[in-house]
Design a protein around this nucleic acid. Structure first.
Length: 957
RNA sequence: GGGCCUAUAGCUCAGAUGGUUAGAGCGCACGCCUGAUAAGCGUGAGGUCGAUAGUUCAAUUCUAUCUAGGCCCA
């Protein structure tokens, strides 16, 4: 007779294979139809608000793995806080303005760009941004990210642009906005500023010259070198490849730690880096130089003054005077170790000047260093350098060299072929040239200090983020707000055509903001200055009434930096400041930084209570991903091959505070973890078949449950606590490990394995079996909820498969509408845990013995075994209470206990001295019951069921 | 070159005010089962805790240097 039909074997529609790439889109469309996100928000009305303010990705191209990481992390937080009972809206945003899009559009236009109007170009940029924002939106949704995707914020909408201008107005009102000079890359042919991304590096041959800067300050006393008194002149020797920048010279920089040699050459002394003597001597054919001494850069040079070859710039006594300063950027790679500093024509020069000017008050220099720019838009020297006025700088170079020769300061000359920036459009060499820019002062209104104070009021996760942003804010120069571009928000300023004075006025800006709110920022480009200005506007300086518009747009970091004002604040007082900003660690320099400065300026405090940062995605070797290295992992590919769920699991399983590795091996392993969790759920579901959570007969009082079931519940209680703690602390790794361990060890290998006999062979309605089913139901329901923020698709899949579920019951029709489970109150939980820990240790010893028995062909299945446990008295006392349960716990047919002082046995012995146990494994007594596979002496006693044991006879009759 | 950071089994992660044989899950090998079956169970092998030097009775843990790697800046 076939007794298999009398067993209660697991049964479920829940498939073993997730089939994620196909099934995920089905869940997505169902959630969309259900308007699930909106329903979740409605269901949390009146609950405490938790605001995670989305940092806007740039609307350019498809999403990459870093985007996926960022959005999944946010989604896990949004979902887990929601399931903790908070109201957690998620408003995604996009950064739409800026150079990369403008650059792309200009590239596509090619030669036609010249005939394209500003408005038309902006229209094309807008189209471009719209296209990619939609692409990214769909890709983010595909990841299973919940949010208000129908109402995102875009930095190019009228509202947002108006908000940008209003915030700029507040900056002006605070008084920190000013116009000043700053070097930019400049194409003299196209007469335009270029961004770093708009230059191409190509080989270029430059002159290189060595020029003497004679000391004006008496060096003899300062350095105490006897030889100096005997010579006619002591000079620093500088080296440069841009002779045309010498008129703008303001200083000479030495490295503090480099050794500088005083070289006697004929009847004078020249000073240059000791290590470069040979090279310079060769290049300049120095006649028999001899070292009369060396000094480090920091030993006495700083603040001394040399004579520079041109007298332009500065005023009064500063004319022709070039002080010596110290700079860490000076190297020994080329030149002389003495660097000619022209703040108007070099970034490092400029920053060094700012640094020294800030210290002028402390007396390092007597006068501030000037940002001098004797070069016009065409790249021609101006009348400030009368000798060469009107000549293009690159053409003027040879004549300047001749001039230096005549002055007797040229030490040597040659040419150098090197990599040099060229304009991406006209391919001509570009120059560094300071131009008028808009700035926000870090000093005015104590912006820097206040920002630093705010940093310490914010929670930085990980904590080192605090040091990183603190260092940046402490050291950064004034914020340059202007960009010489079209695709952005205009700086609402004007210039008097009569006297060239700038006009920035709070009232006028407010009016412009209203106009932009109505028409969008295009209005600035479409209307003339007089149309934009109120009719009565007059210049405060000269009384003029004619103005021209400011041509520049705002730095995009300003735009995203004010998102707290454009997006968060308008939604309600309780929204601001946001609870959390979450981005990659590069945003310490970017968004966290600009948002902090913006918010401190306009609102006096940080716009976030906490900032969480993640690392960058690297390949399996920890190397940066790049097309050329061929190690790029695209989220789209992972989704096609494994599903978004695996990507979500990957995010959760990795330590996101460091760099995150991804590789085929890692994904394969995650797939294994996923399968384990999925399969455990499937088995749980299969065994709650026939269980009805609403049937009182199926609900067994916890106190009535056998210890084994209570142990399972207590383990699950643990999981509930740890997983919720993990979400609370943003420690998602812990959650994955917790779920994995619970499914693999506590459930699959322990509880479920022990439970099989009971579930399969006991009568369907037996209270013990129903009790176990109730436990299984509790666990699988809770498991679905606990995994939902990470495994959002699978959790819903499990939810659907719960018996008596969803539509017909009290359960919500989506797991995402539910809240996390609470731990169950269990009697004597700690005691129970301790005792079962002991019991499971005994089990491990027995498993070892059984394995030995298997190897020696005494048994195959563990049910073939009878185990004899010889144990010391204390352990005997403990185990006695479980004697009835031992066959279940050990999954053997028979288990007997023997007290002994010296545990040892003869057959298949396994000793565990520490525990005081030895185990004998022998063939079980009796015959194997055909139905339950246990060996029992009762098999054969019932004539009508000759192959069954007494228990099964009972069960089938 | 400067700032911030990382390095523990094949993989993902634990770990210790410095103190016995450094843990887990997965993977792997071997075996069992065939009533979770493109499943399940068991046993086992894997680590000079990135390298070197120093402090110490004792360092994987502290310090320095180096190597490799990441972000930002120059």
């Amino acid at each position: 007779m076939d007794y298999k039909g009398t067993l209660n074997l697991p049964k479920t529609a829940f498939p073993m294979k997730g089939n994620l790439p196909q099934r995920e889109p089905e869940f997505l469309s169902r959630w969309a139809e259900q308007r699930l996100y909106q329903r979740i928000q409605e269901s949390r009305k009146g609950k405490p608000l938790y605001v995670l303010h989305d940092g806007p990705p740039y609307a350019n191209g498809h999403i990459h793995i870093g985007h996926a990481l960022n959005k999944i992390l946010k989604d896990v937080i949004v979902k887990s806080r929601t399931m903790e009972g908070y109201r957690v809206p998620y408003v995604p945003g996009w950064d739409c303005h800026g150079l990369p899009i403008e650059h792309q559009v200009a590239k596509q236009l090619g030669a036609k760009k010249k005939e394209t109007s500003a408005t038309e170009l902006r229209r094309l940029c807008r189209e471009y941004a719209e296209k990619f924002y939609a692409v990214q939106r769909d890709e983010f949704q595909r990841l299973g990210v919940f949010g208000d995707w129908d109402h995102p914020y875009l930095t190019m909408t009228k509202d947002y642009e108006a908000a940008i201008i209003r915030e700029f107005g507040k900056f002006v009102e605070q008084g920190g906005v000013y116009k000043g000079l700053k070097p930019v890359l400049w194409c003299t042919r196209d007469q335009t500023a270029l961004a770093e991304a708009e230059v191409e590096y190509a080989n270029h041959t430059s002159p290189c010259i060595y020029v003497k800067f004679p000391f004006i300050s008496a060096p003899q006393e300062r350095f105490g070198l006897g030889g100096l008194a005997e010579v006619e002149q002591v000079s620093l020797v500088i080296w440069t490849t841009t002779p045309w920048t010498l008129p703008a010279n303001q200083a000479v920089a030495l490295h503090p730690d480099i050794d500088y040699a005083f070289l006697r050459v004929g009847n004078e002394v020249v000073v240059l880096a000791e290590k470069l003597i040979d090279e310079v001597s060769r290049a300049c054919r120095l006649d028999n130089p001899s070292i009369i001494g060396t000094r480090k850069g920091k030993d006495g040079f700083e603040g001394m003054v040399c004579r520079r070859p041109f007298t332009l710039g500065g005023s009064g006594q500063a004319q022709g005077r070039s002080p010596i300063v110290l700079g860490d950027f000076v190297t020994l790679e080329q030149g002389t170790g003495c660097v000619h500093i022209a703040p108007g024509h070099g970034m490092e020069d400029y920053l060094l000047a700012l640094k020294y000017n800030a210290e002028t008050a402390t007396g390092v220099l007597t006068e501030p260093l000037q940002v001098v720019v004797p070069v016009d838009d065409n790249g021609c020297l101006t009348s400030e350098v009368p000798e060469f006025a009107g000549q293009h700088v690159l053409q003027a170079d040879p004549e300047i060299v001749n001039h230096l020769q005549r002055l007797g300061v040229l030490v040597g000359q040659g040419t150098l072929e090197h990599s040099y920036p060229h304009c991406w459009r006209c391919k001509k060499p570009v120059i560094f040239r300071a131009t008028q820019q808009w700035f926000v002062s870090m000093g005015k209104g104590r912006l820097r200090e206040r920002a630093l104070e705010e940093i310490d009021r914010v929670q930085w996760i990980p904590a080192r983020g605090r040091d990183r942003i603190h260092g940046m804010i402490a050291n950064r120069p004034d914020w340059c707000l202007s960009r010489q571009r079209l695709w952005g928000t205009p700086i609402p300023g004007f210039i008097c055509t009569t006297c060239q004075s700038p006009l920035v006025d709070v009232t006028i800006i407010a009016a412009i903001a209203d106009l932009v709110g109505e028409h969008g920022a295009d209005v600035w480009f479409q209307r003339s200055a007089n149309e934009l200005l109120p009719g009565t506007t007059t210049c405060a300086t000269c009384g003029g009434t004619e103005f021209k518009k400011e041509q520049d747009i705002l730095d995009v970091w300003f735009e995203s930096g004010v998102s707290h004002a454009a997006v968060v604040k308008p939604r309600g007082a309780e929204w601001w400041p946001a609870d959390l900003y979450l981005e990659g660690s590069d945003q310490h320099r970017g968004w966290f930084h600009s948002a902090l400065l913006a918010s401190v300026t306009t609102d006096g405090r940080a716009p976030y209570r906490a900032v969480l940062t993640h690392g960058f995605v690297v390949d399996g070797q920890g190397k940066k991903m790049s097309k050329s290295a061929g190690n790029v992992v695209a989220p789209q590919d992972v989704m096609t091959q494994y599903g978004a769920e695996i990507l979500r699991l990957w995010v959760a399983a990795q330590d996101y505070q460091e760099d995150l590795r991804i590789s085929p091996q890692i994904l394969k392993q995650l797939m294994e973890t996923y399968r384990k969790i999925r399969n455990t759920c499937r088995y749980l579901l299969g065994n709650v078949d026939g269980f009805d959570p609403h049937d009182p007969a199926h609900r067994i009082d916890v106190h009535q449950l056998p210890e084994l079931d209570r142990w399972a519940l207590l383990r699950f209680n643990n999981v509930i606590r740890n997983v919720r703690k993990g979400y609370e602390e943003f420690d998602f790794r812990q959650i994955v490990h917790e779920l994995d361990y619970f499914c693999s060890v506590d459930m699959s290998a322990t509880y479920l394995d022990m439970l099989k006999d009971r579930l399969y062979t006991f009568p369907k309605e037996s209270p013990v079996r129903r009790g176990s089913q109730m436990v299984l139901f509790t666990i699988v329901t809770g498991l679905a909820q606990l995994m939902a923020p990470i495994l959002s698709f699978t959790a819903e899949d499990v939810w659907d498969a719960l018996p008596g579920n969803a539509h017909a019951s009290s359960l919500a029709d989506s797991v995402h509408l539910s809240t996390f489970p609470e731990p169950l109150a269990l009697p004597n939980q700690d005691d129970l845990e301790a005792r079962w820990k002991q019991l499971l240790t005994v089990r491990t010893v027995v498993m070892g013995a059984l394995e030995k028995g298997r190897r020696e062909n005494v048994i195959g299945s563990s049910l073939d075994a009878r185990v004899v446990l010889n144990v010391v008295p204390t352990l005997y006392q403990f185990l006695q209470a479980y004697e009835q349960d031992l066959p279940t716990v050990l999954i053997v047919s028979q288990a007997v206990l023997h007290p002994t002082d010296h545990p040892s046995g003869e057959t298949h012995l396994t000793d565990d001295a520490a525990l005081g146990i030895s185990v004998n494994v022998v063939k079980a007594e009796g015959r194997k019951c055909e139905r339950c596979w246990n060996y029992r002496v009762s098999v054969g006693r019932a004539p009508q069921h000759p192959t069954l044991c007494h228990r099964c006879v009972e069960a089938v009759t």
